[in-house]
Structures are given as structure tokens and as C-alpha cells.
Design a protein around this nucleic acid. Structure first.
Length: 509
RNA sequence: GGCGGCGUAGCUCAGUUGGUUAGAGCAGCGGAAUCAUAAUCCGCGUGUCGUAGGUUCGAGUCCUACCGCCGCUACCA
């Protein structure tokens, strides 16, 4: 049994969970569920990033301790994870004692290996923000938040010798063309490295809410170093009685949005190199969900509220829509109107109605029992083709393509119904054998669809199996024609995807 | 400014290493069928493949210029 470790970024708790967070989590969960179907030993990690000055400041404004503040906000992300039916094997928090201890050990190792040195960070500092600014970020030379003139300040920091990893990183990129997907992101990261790397500071002197450096406790670890290490620290304490690293490290896939590419594709692998650890096998960089006909907006999360979609259409609809309407990896426009259209055209009409009509025909023509019959060769072949394609595409994180491949079977089955017209066969007692073959093919093919789609539609797939009397066998071996037992009792329980009258939304503010 | 990418049917997009009549889904129009959530199935597209040149026996697919759009150009989570 092979192992598959995959991660989402850990989400910064200063914001409320929104569509972007849900998107990454849903994609990762789909992969995790699929690989579990295939019998792999999966470890799916997600969680929250909780240190940093911003949290401390907001907590103070609210009259809370930083810990109380991040406890509250982390819980919201935990709920989001549950709401989209994600199934992480561990939900990490960077305030976990186990994580903090690991970060300190890792930094010490990095220093012992000679990759850390003391230096001076200089820059324009706003005392109101307690943060450094670059000249480009200033407005007329003044702090954009406070309108005050920042002062030139020096701060003693500890630095990570990132520049030393320029050549090793390039070598790694050249030896592993699949390291970053899609290829355009690979090129972007590689050319950034080739353009020359500067050392980066890994500590802050003025921020208390963070992990103290073991050798200089008056400084705290820069939040990005802290955050990136979650992927590795989880291995050390997620299971109190087991070091998971030998079993799962390195990650097979790390998912992230394009805005945090550099941290993951440059600094993170360099950190691991510095500690002598294996690098993640592949990074999957997905794009932004944008509002149709509008520029990218920070408020996109509010423009399409994932929780409203779940309430109106169900969680499977949200998962399906996001992975289907926007090619995974690229940017794409989304809208409530498009949710509404795809829900009805594909989930309700193509798939839901297929299940409904198959159950109805078995009920009407063979007394609710799937007759013994032979699978139609064309459907058998379609299932086999889809099984290969869905497996291959999902493995490559081509989740949109995987859905398209599965849908070929749905379409083939609807076509098959029309071609064979069971209602005509049922009128002729002499064609009972033919009717049996057709109904068996339909019930079994519908069952196979559910298996193919189980990772994408975790609520609906088991319902489909129940509807055609297939029990609960969702293993990947079941994604083959002819596995349905003759005599199975169908059980229609109403529309799988009931029609929704009014689309959500209207004009967002 | 530098590096990179994009611009294909009304809409969203596919189009391997250049090669016969440029494709899919949706929408639209016409038809069939009635098992089904009026859900399905079949048929229908004269598209200057951004513009102008070039290479080639042959280019959406390579080269040049131009127009338009976008991404990256480092630590402020």
C-alpha cells in the first residue's frame, strides 16, 4: 500500500473563512477521498496559521488575549472544513505546543547547519503599524494607514541564507519538471530563482506573538517560516505515539493558490534542503475564482458565499460546481447564475434524472428487482475508459478533466436508454431477455458512475448506490461494469438533486 | 522598463512534436420519444483562429512587428 500525504495551506485566522479557502480544501479532499478509494494510505493535512502581529493587534482591539482570539477564529475554519465535508486526517494549529517545539528544533538545526546568521534589517518603519514598509507601498512618502511619515529604522535580525540555495534549487527544478504545476507556475518560480535570491530574515525583534528563537528568545520566528513548517511538524505530533515522517514524508502534493507561490516554491524547499530533508514531490498551484465580467476582487468570497450555495443546493453541488466550472489550475469566472445552470443541467438533469428513470423502470418493468442480465459491451467499454481517465486525471490533479471523463458515462447511459427504449421492450413478453440485459446494464452502469464520482460527490454517491440496490461498495475496484448483484432491490427515495426555483444572489453589493 | 503568457463559434473554453473538410459544452432553432426531477435523445455553426507581414509544398500550431488584456518583478500573515 503506497502512502499519499497531501496538504492545503494553513489558513490565516485573521480573516473569516471564504470561498477561496473552501476551494483549496475541497480540491484536496477530493484527491484524498479518491486515493482512499484506491486503497492508498492517505494523510490529508489542513489547519490554521495563528501567529503574527496582526492577530495580536486585533485581539487587543477586541479586548481579548491573542490565544482566545485565535481559538475562536480557528474554530470557524474547522467548521468550514466540516461544512464542505472535507476529511482531513489532522487539523493543525500553529499554536499547538507540538508545532512550536518542532519549529524551535528545526530552526536550531538550520542554524547548526550554518544556514543562519545575525544581520541587520533596515527599512522604513511605521510606529503606528509596527511594521516595515517599502517605498513603493507608501502614499506620498507617508504610511497608507496612518498618514504619518515612517522613520528609517534598523533592526537586528537573524537571517536565512536563502542565496546559498539558488544553484541547488535550479538543479532541483531542472531535474524535476513536474515539481510545480501548472507549467506556467513552474516557469514563473524557476525564473524568479534564476533572477537571483537574496537572504531573508527569519526573525522579528518587535513582535511577541510568535515562536521564540531557541538561541535568542527575545526574537520571534517570522510567521512564514513558522507557517511553512506546519507541513513537517504535523508528522512529529499528529499521532502522539507515532513519528509519521517515515510513513508519509515527503508530501506527494501540496495545494496552494498562486498568491503564495514563492513561499512554497522557493523558500520552503530551500528550508528543507537546509535541514537535509526530502522536498515535496509536487506543488499544485490553482488560480483565483473571479466574478464574471469583473476584475479580481478581494471581496469575491462575499460575492459568492459558499455557505449560501450549500444551503440552497447542497454541499455536493458546491464541490461539483467549483471543480467543474473552473479548470483546476487556472483562473475562472464564477457566479450564482452559473451554479444554478450547472446544477440543473448536469447534476439534476443528467445524473439525478438518470438515477430516477433507471429506478423507475426497474420498479415498473421487473418489480423493483434488478434482473439478471448481461452488460452491454459499449457501456462496459465506456466505464472502463472512464475508470482509467478519472484515475489518471485525478492523480495528476486535473480534477476538471476527471469530472468530464466521468460524465461521459452519464451521457452514454442516457443515450443507451433512448437507443434501447425499455418501455418498448416491456410491451413484448418475447423480448424479456433483452429487457433484462438493458435494465441490468443501466442499473449497473449507474452504480459504476457513483463509484467514479464518489470522491467528488460524497453525499450523492452512497445515495445512488442505495437507489440501485448496490449496498455501500465504493472501492475503486467497483468502478467496473458487471459488479451489481442480480436481484438487487432498487429503492427510489425521490430526486437526488431537486430542482431549485430561484437562483441565489441578485446584485451583490 | 525586464521576463513570461494570452487574444479560436453568441457565451465558457479544447486544440499533441506545423499536414486531409478547426472541435466540445452551454445558449438558440428544428425533430423524435415518453421510463424519468417537462428531466432525455437526434439534427443544425459560410467562425477574417487579435492585426500586418515572413518561413514552408502546407500554419490556429514556427519567426518578426504592431494592437489589446493579464501574470511575475521577494520577507509587512
Amino acid at each position: 500500500m503506497s502512502s499519499a500525504f497531501l496538504t492545503t495551506p494553513i489558513y490565516y485566522v485573521n480573516a473569516q473563512p471564504h470561498l477561496g479557502h473552501a476551494y483549496t480544501t475541497i480540491a484536496a479532499d477530493t484527491y484524498a477521498r479518491h486515493m482512499r478509494q484506491r486503497g492508498e494510505d492517505v494523510f490529508f493535512l489542513t489547519g490554521t496559521d495563528e501567529h503574527g502581529d496582526k492577530n495580536a493587534r486585533v485581539a487587543a482591539e477586541l479586548g481579548m488575549t491573542p490565544q482566545d482570539f485565535v481559538d475562536r477564529n480557528s474554530a470557524a475554519f474547522r467548521r468550514m472544513t466540516d461544512d464542505v465535508l472535507a476529511t482531513p486526517d489532522f487539523f493543525i494549529r500553529t499554536t499547538d505546543p507540538g508545532h512550536i517545539a518542532y519549529v524551535q528544533d528545526f530552526l536550531q538545526a538550520l542554524k547548526d547547519n550554518g544556514h543562519v546568521y545575525e544581520g541587520v534589517y533596515e527599512g522604513l518603519y511605521c510606529t503606528g503599524c509596527e511594521a516595515f514598509y517599502k517605498e513603493d507601498d507608501l502614499v506620498d512618502g507617508l504610511c497608507p494607514d496612518h498618514g504619518t511619515k515612517p522613520e528609517w529604522l534598523q533592526e537586528s535580525n537573524w537571517f536565512f541564507r536563502l542565496s546559498a540555495f539558488e544553484a541547488p534549487l535550479l538543479a532541483h527544478y531542472d531535474a524535476n519538471p513536474g515539481f510545480v504545476s501548472p507549467a506556467s507556475r513552474f516557469n514563473e518560480a524557476r525564473s524568479f530563482i534564476q533572477g537571483g535570491l537574496e537572504d531573508v530574515s527569519l526573525s522579528r525583534a518587535s513582535i511577541d506573538w510568535g515562536v521564540p528563537l531557541p538561541w535568542a528568545p527575545e526574537q520571534t520566528c517570522y510567521v512564514w517560516f513558522d507557517a511553512l513548517l506546519n507541513y513537517r511538524s504535523a508528522m512529529s505530533y499528529a499521532r502522539p505515539d507515532e513519528d509519521l515522517a517515515p510513513r508519509y514524508w515527503p508530501p506527494r502534493w501540496q495545494l496552494l493558490a498562486k498568491d503564495i507561490l514563492k513561499f512554497h516554491a522557493v523558500i520552503w524547499p530551500a528550508m528543507l534542503m537546509g535541514a537535509g530533508m526530502a522536498l515535496p514531490e509536487r506543488l499544485m498551484i490553482h488560480g483565483y475564482l473571479t466574478v464574471r465580467d469583473a476584475k479580481m476582487s478581494k471581496s469575491v468570497g462575499n460575492v459568492l458565499d459558499p455557505f449560501a450555495v450549500i444551503d440552497a443546493y447542497g454541499v455536493d453541488a458546491l464541490r461539483y460546481y467549483l471543480l467543474r466550472d473552473v479548470r483546476f489550475g487556472g483562473d475562472g469566472g464564477i457566479s450564482y447564475e452559473a451554479v444554478h445552470e450547472r446544477y440543473h443541467a448536469e447534476l439534476a438533469n443528467d445524473l439525478g434524472n438518470l438515477v430516477n428513470r433507471v429506478v423507475a423502470m426497474v420498479g415498473k418493468y421487473t418489480d423493483g428487482r434488478v434482473p439478471a442480465g448481461a452488460c452491454d459491451p459499449a457501456i462496459t467499454a465506456a466505464v472502463e475508459t472512464a475508470r482509467e481517465a478519472v484515475g489518471r486525471h485525478t492523480g495528476e490533479m486535473e480534477l476538471t478533466e476527471a469530472l468530464e471523463a466521468a460524465w461521459e458515462v452519464v451521457r452514454a447511459l442516457n443515450r443507451f436508454v433512448e437507443e434501447r427504449a425499455p418501455w418498448t421492450l416491456a410491451k413484448d413478453p418475447g423480448r424479456a431477455d433483452e429487457l433484462a440485459d438493458v435494465l441490468y446494464t443501466l442499473a449497473d452502469g449507474t452504480r459504476a458512475c457513483a463509484v467514479l464520482l464518489a470522491a467528488f460527490l460524497p453525499v450523492s454517491a452512497p445515495r445512488i448506490l442505495a437507489a440501485v440496490g448496490a449496498g455501500d461498495a465504493l472501492g475503486w475496484d467497483e468502478a467496473t461494469a458487471g459488479r451489481l448483484a442480480a436481484g438487487a432491490a432498487v429503492a427510489g427515495e425521490g430526486p437526488l438533486f431537486p430542482r431549485v426555483e430561484e437562483p441565489l444572489g441578485g446584485a451583490p453589493s
